[in-house]
Each structure stands twice: as C-alpha cells, then as structure tokens.
Amino acid sequence: MATGGRRGAAAAPLLVAVAALLLGAAGHLYPGEVCPGMDIRNNLTRLHELENCSVIEGHLQILLMFKTRPEDFRDLSFPKLIMITDYLLLFRVYGLESLKDLFPNLTVIRGSRLFFNYALVIFEMVHLKELGLYNLMNITRGSVRIEKNNELCYLATIDWSRILDSVEDNYIVLNKDDNEECGDICPGTAKGKTNCPATVINGQFVERCWTHSHCQKVCPTICKSHGCTAEGLCCHSECLGNCSQPDDPTKCVACRNFYLDGRCVETCPPPYYHFQDWRCVNFSFCQDLHHKCKNSRRQGCHQYVIHNNKCIPECPSGYTMNSSNLLCTPCLGPCPKVCHLLEGEKTIDSVTSAQELRGCTVINGSLIINIRGGNNLAAELEANLGLIEEISGYLKIRRSYALVSLSFFRKLRLIRGETLEIGNYSFYALDNQNLRQLWDWSKHNLTITQGKLFFHYNPKLCLSEIHKMEEVSGTKGRQERNDIALKTNGDQASCENELLKFSYIRTSFDKI
C-alpha cells in the first residue's frame, strides 16, 4: 500500500482533458527560462521544448504516446526543470519506465491550478516501474492521483506527508504495488545497510526511497516546507523545498512566496507586481503582455491589467481597466465587458449561442446573426445582446428569417469595421425574408467608422429604411451602385405612401 494514499474509496472516473512563447529569463536562482504550460502528445517531438525550461508557468501534460519505446527515452533528460506552477499529468506514455532521468531536479509542483483537485496525476502508464522524482520536495496545493499503472512499484516507500501538507485526498490505487509483488529495495538494503531515512506512518517504520538508488530526502521537522541542505541544516524561511546553503534567500532552489532578481522575498516591493503567484514583474512586463494579447485571437491570451499590486489576466467583477495605466478602477454604474472572439468572429444561430455573449459591452471581433427560429426570440436576444455598444469588426445579418427588427441591439452605437466582410463591408444584410426595420432612427444613433453597407434580398425592408441608415451611420456616399439592390429590397412591402385627393359631386333626387 502506498504510504499516505487512500484505498478502496469510491472515486469519480478520471477524465483526461485534452506555445513556446518565453516569458522571460528567471535569473540567477533558476538555471534556465520560464516556459508556458505545455500539452505534449502523440510523439516526442515537442518534448524537446523543455530543454531550457527551469519553470513551467502553467501545467505540463505528457500523454497518448503509443509508439514510443524505452530506448526512445534513454537520452532524454531535462535537468534544468525545477518547478511547475500548476500540475504534472502523465497518461498512456508507452515505453517510459521512470522519471528519474527525465526530470531529475523537479523540486516543486505548486498546484496553482489543479487537474480535478490533483497536482500530480500518473494514470495508465503501462510501462512505468517507478516514479523516480527523487528531488520532489513540495506539492504546495492539491493532491496526488496514481492509478492503474500495472508495473509501478516504489510507492509504499514514499512518505507523501513530507511532500504535501495533507495526504487525506491522495488516491493511489490499482498499481502493481497493490499486489505486494514489488519487493522494493532501498539503497544499501541488499548489503544489509540502512542508507535512507525511515519514518513512521500508520504504525509502520519504513525506509523512504524513490528507487533502488535514490533515497527520499527527509528534512528535520523544524525546517517545515522550506527544505534543508545535504547536511540537514534548514533553508531560509522564504525558500521552498530545498537550498544549497542554509538561511540564505539567494540560495533557495525555489521560493515559498515570490522570486525577485535572484532572491526569494515575502512580497513584491514597489515598483514590482505579483505575477502568477510566484514571481515579481515590473510595469513594462505587464504592459507588454497586455499589448501582445490586445489584437491576438490565441486562446488563453489575456490583456493583463494591474489590481491590488498584482498583474492579473482581467479586472475583477465591479472594476474596469483604465487604459492609460492598466489599473483596475471601480465602475460607475454597470461595468464594461470586452469579449474577445477566439477566431475573430462568432455566429449567433440560437439563443444558446447568444447567451455566451451575455453582459458583453464591447465585441472584439465580428458578429454573424443567422437565426431561423426560436421561442420568445426578441426578448431572449435583447437579454443577451442588448448591452453590446461596440463591435470592432463587422455585423452580418444573414438568412435570419425569424427577425423582424434589429432593435434587440438596443445599445449598439459603434461598428468600427477594423475587419470587413469580403474585404469591403462593415454591415452586411443578406436574404432576411421578414426583416422590416433596422432601428427606430428617431431614437437610435449608430456610427460606422469604416467599410460599406450591403443589402440584398431583404424583400420587406424598404429602401427608405436603408437610406436612413446611410445618413445616420455616416456611410452615405461610400456605397457603390450594386451594394444596395434596388429590386430585391422592399419588393414585397408597401414602401411608397402617396396622399390621394378626392373630389365629389353631391346629387339628390331633384338636383344634379
């Protein structure tokens, strides 16, 4: 039985969820670079991206490699990797027998973001014989899940209580170790020597080791999670996991709180800001991140802002960003909400898709409305799209047979046209069989910064309504002859009103 693990408890099935942008060198404390989270699957090609990484700022997932063999891993080693800020997950990587050479110096898994409450997941690794993470000293947050690894031993010899604050939620089941077939031998045991430290858990006094050649490092209890030197002297209180010299914040392997210019500090002093819960960055760093993602459509890219001495992905609820200094300031009234469309555009074809934009005031991208039916549609669209004030790209209304009016965009005031449909149009209306009105132009103002209007096959939309939009939106004169079809717009509506004058002759039985 794995020490510190839980057996036999019912657990939810383990679901495996399925960018080499360097964020800056980590400095003297770390020998390499800070790398983003990685999802490495199918083959070993991307694994080489770990070569210079000291910190993975995010998670590391290595999974679904069915053609790899043990010899493929023999020359692979990433000794610079010290810390993973989120979680480490391995799933069905064939041929991998140990992690001792792959990650010989991995010391800390912070667990800032977890995989279903777990910071370390080893699942269905069919050839893994031992973990071998002999320098792993601290899992700051989260638990361990090690399950269905039929060859995995050296679990009962690990004292997880020396690595985690609590072992109650560890789930370590259905491994070879369960069948008591392992016969784990710690260093020196074969020669009758006791080389590794022994600890007591559940009444068992057991030597602690990761492999037959690597003991588990056990520091004096007084050192807590700070770690200790090879001689057993406690590291500085700002260290986490390990250090090369005692009581020196510049000799830590990793930091308990924050890293700044080669030393570990309790908090980031001005003019620095907390970033990702582990390091200090200056304003320029946060500003660069903001600008890199301002026009990016890459998933996970955030326009970072500053709030409460932190550089964070977005302002919290009730705050909006001051564009001059990136500071989050309290909103006066309802907060603006910028919604970034991942692929640059979004099609609204149902109430469900409209709900995804609920509360958005600025759309960074283009909207395509293609709704053919739905219950209580006008009210639903207004509830979900009615706060949109600005669209950076274009607005396209296409084959939306259920629409009679666009009044559900009740606050839309600006279409920038930074991206144009077919390279020309910022407003595009095609084949809307029941569209009769755009907006009530006596109450609604709309500016279209650039781009043209396109109207074709809107049989109940009168040309007068379209011409009014040209005047109000500032697009009059931009359109070419064929942009607004004269014969297919309003051709099934009563669009022309003329005053009919009647004269009559009164007659009676005795007068003409």
Rank of each mutant, 00 (worst) to 15 (best):
H28L: 10
H28M: 09
L29S: 07
E33G: 12
V34L: 07
V34A: 09
C35K: 00
R41I: 12
N42K: 12
V55D: 00
I56T: 01
E57C: 03
L60Y: 00
I62W: 02
M65L: 09
K67T: 06
K67D: 08
K67Y: 05
T68H: 08
K80T: 05
M83Q: 06
T85V: 06
D86T: 02
Y87R: 00
L88G: 00
L88V: 07
L90S: 02
L90F: 09
Y94A: 08
L96W: 03
E97H: 05
L99Y: 01
K100C: 06
K100A: 06
L102T: 02
L102Q: 01
L102S: 01
F103W: 03
F103D: 00
P104D: 00
T107D: 02
R110H: 04
G111F: 00
S112F: 04
F115I: 15
N117G: 13
A119F: 00
E124P: 00
E124I: 00
M125S: 06
M125R: 00
L128M: 09
K129Y: 08
G132V: 01
L133S: 07
L133E: 01
M137Q: 13
I139K: 01
R141V: 07
R141Q: 15
V144H: 01
R145V: 14
R145S: 11
E147D: 03
E147M: 06
K148M: 06
E151R: 05
C153P: 00
L155R: 04
A156T: 07
A156M: 10
T157N: 09
T157V: 05
I158Y: 08
S161E: 13
L164S: 07
S166Y: 08
V167H: 07
D169G: 14
V173R: 11
V173L: 15
K176L: 03
D177T: 14
D177L: 10
D178A: 15
D184Q: 04
C186G: 11
P187I: 09
G188D: 10
G188P: 08
T189Y: 04
T189P: 10
T189M: 07
T189V: 11
T194C: 02
N195S: 08
P197A: 07
P197V: 05
V200T: 10
I201C: 13
I201V: 14
G203N: 12
Q204S: 11
E207P: 15
T211G: 02
T211N: 12
H214I: 05
C215W: 08
K217Y: 06
V218I: 13
T221E: 14
G227W: 10
T229G: 03
A230S: 04
C234F: 01
S237K: 05
E238K: 04
E238D: 15
C239H: 00
N242P: 10
C243K: 00
D248I: 03
D248S: 08
C252I: 00
A254V: 13
C255P: 00
C255M: 01
F258I: 02
F258P: 01
Y259H: 07
G262R: 04
V265A: 10
P270I: 14
P271V: 05
F275H: 07
D277W: 05
D277T: 05
C280Y: 00
C280P: 00
S284I: 02
S284C: 02
H291T: 01
H291V: 14
C293Q: 01
R297I: 08
R297T: 05
H302L: 05
Q303A: 07
Y304K: 08
N308P: 02
K310M: 06
K310C: 08
E314L: 08
C315K: 01
Y319Q: 15
T320S: 04
N322G: 13
N322L: 14
N325V: 07
C331K: 07
L332E: 15
L332A: 15
L332W: 11
